[in-house]
Design a protein around this nucleic acid. Structure first.
Length: 152
DNA sequence: GCCAACGTTGGC
DNA sequence: GCCAACGTTGGC
């Protein structure tokens, strides 16, 4: 079992959007960073747990999800006119990958980034490292559990 | 709105 | 292969 954190701008795609999708499931498209892609393509497994993070105005972990489908080609890379279109992507070499994510739970209260920074057990968390800009990143089981307990 | 940090691109 | 310039992310 792996644990992850996935960032999304709530204007673009929020945890409520995910919850309201059929079966609470949707594809996580549009990631255009190689390191993040590699996590999705190579390491995510069905049922892995995910912290859903809202970036932007009130950055916070807002709930949890599960990986519902392992890495597969991101079709938006091949859609001319899509914001995420990439001419280099072909059926033989899709370049960009995505996973499907299934809604699990929305926290009764969001756990803000500022709050996470105050927790000594989270000091080493990738999310909190200076300059970190990854939108998909691993978290440890301990970090995951710590954040769940903060949300209660 | 600003800006720090980072990844990518392209000239050399 | 280096590095300057640029675009983007994302916190504040």
């Amino acid at each position: 079992m792996n644990y992850w954190l996935m960032k999304s701008e709530p204007n673009e795609f929020s945890i409520d959007d995910l919850k309201n999708r059929p079966a609470g499931t949707d594809c996580w498209d549009g990631v255009r960073n190689y390191q993040a892609r590699n996590f999705m393509r190579d390491e995510m497994r069905v049922k892995d747990r995910v912290l859903f993070y809202h970036s932007g105005k009130n950055p916070a972990v807002v709930g949890t999800a599960r990986i519902a489908k392992a890495g597969y080609p991101d079709h938006t890379a091949r859609e001319r006119g899509s914001k995420h279109f990439d001419t280099r992507s072909t059926p033989e070499n899709p370049i960009w990958f995505m996973v499907d994510v299934k809604f699990e739970k929305k926290f009764s209260r969001a756990v803000s980034l500022a709050e996470l920074r105050k927790i000594s057990a989270l000091r080493e968390m990738t999310l909190l490292r200076k300059g970190n800009r990854l939108s998909v990143m691993p978290v440890t089981r301990e970090e995951f559990d710590t954040i769940l307990s903060l949300a209660k």
